[in-house]
């Protein structure tokens, strides 16, 4: 009975989240520098002849929306894995410094190829995620060795404290590099670092999509190990899981997701924290369900933040990462008070 009701609830939650996502999707297409009514959008989609809104809708607004959804999914799943694998409800790629590690690598890349614009070379867009990934891995590696102690392994609290420290170090390195850049690259880097998806083209989506297509199925496949790891190390070993090996694999996946998202979207913090936490409230801790629902919540949250970032202070646009932080930080504080 119990099992069945939970299963039903899961379906209801997914249903409502999908509707919410669809509504946000339409709203995101409508709102912007010029308002396009949903009816006009509908006509534009259906008509075979090129309409007046086609350029704005399909080349400006749609790639941005798709990218927001993809990044939302990637960050949320990354956060969900981190939280389960480290048994730490406060883990998030942004707070732990994985994002700033990836950001550092990207800034390093921009620094050495100064003057070359992001969009001018398509190749760059495909190279950046690889760089970001290396940076994210470096950060994760540093966090892991500094928080590992012979006596007690990696405790959740130490992990997060060390993460804050690593975050500060990478941020300092980023500032040092940034100030050596020419003014244009500097501004570009600043905007990108605060998490930004304005003015993106389809090529950004193509750069991120392969990573998600490869990584997400592996994550889903590993979800059952994640369930076991949540029970704690002793229990997991008892159940015959090679704890350290599985955890390393899962962390690697989380780092890969966060790194590739940072490469195209910049440093978006707190999304990886909030989305899995909300999802857990909605559907409980079973990872086979939790991971997809987290992804959905992440997509909804990021699309909502994008809408806010474009409309709240219009005509100026604020980086989406700032909106996510403004929503996520209070939630983080709430969790802190409760725990």
């Amino acid at each position: 009975m119990m099992y069945k009701s939970r299963k039903q609830k899961w379906k209801v939650v997914v249903f409502f989240l999908t509707i919410l996502l669809a509504l946000l999707f339409i709203a995101s297409l409508s709102f912007g520098a010029s308002f396009i009514s949903p009816v006009a959008i509908f006509n534009s989609v259906l008509s075979s002849t090129p309409g007046q809104y086609d350029l704005v809708l399909f080349e400006f607004r749609l790639p941005r929306i798709v990218l927001a959804i993809l990044i939302g999914i990637g960050m949320a799943v990354s956060g969900a894995i981190l939280q389960s694998a480290t048994q730490n409800g406060l883990a998030d790629p942004g707070i732990l410094g994985i994002n700033s590690g990836a950001g550092f690598a990207v800034i390093l890349y921009i620094f050495f190829t100064q003057g070359i614009r992001f969009e001018s070379e398509l190749l760059q867009l495909y190279i950046l995620p690889i760089f970001a990934l290396c940076g994210a891995l470096l950060a994760a590696f540093l966090i892991y060795i500094f928080s590992w102690k012979k006596s007690s392994g990696v405790t959740p609290i130490r992990l997060i404290l060390v993460g804050i420290g690593i975050n500060a170090a990478f941020s300092a390195l980023i500032i040092i590099l940034q100030l050596k850049m020419d003014p244009r690259s500097f501004t570009q880097a600043t905007v990108w670092l605060s998490g930004n998806i304005s003015g993106v083209s389809w090529s950004y989506t193509y750069a991120l999509l392969p990573w998600l297509i490869v990584l997400l199925p592996i994550v889903l496949f590993k979800a059952r190990y994640l369930n076991v790891l949540t029970l704690g190390d002793a229990m997991s070993t008892g159940l015959g899981v090679n704890v350290n090996r599985q955890r390393k694999w899962l962390l690697l996946l989380a780092v890969g997701l966060a790194g590739s998202c940072v490469a195209v979207g910049g440093g978006i913090s707190f999304l990886g924290l909030v989305a899995p936490q909300l999802a857990k409230k909605l559907v409980g801790p079973r990872n086979e369900i939790l991971l997809p629902v987290s992804a959905l919540v992440g997509a909804v949250l990021l699309l909502f933040s994008d809408l806010v970032s474009r409309t709240i202070l219009a005509p100026s646009e604020i980086p989406i990462g700032l909106v996510v932080s403004a929503i996520g930080a209070p939630y983080f504080i709430y969790l802190l008070i409760k725990s």
């Binding site: 707070i95 997060i160 804050i164 707190f270 202070l313 100026s316 700032l322 996520g328």
Partner: peptide, 22 residues
């Protein structure tokens, strides 16, 4: 304390950046 401090820092700096951009 460290966590609360970094959350408050993130919150305040994102609000002030947004205002500064505007």
């Amino acid at each position: 304390l460290a966590l609360a401090g970094s959350a408050i820092t993130a919150l305040l700096s994102s609000i002030s950046s947004a205002i500064a951009i505007h």
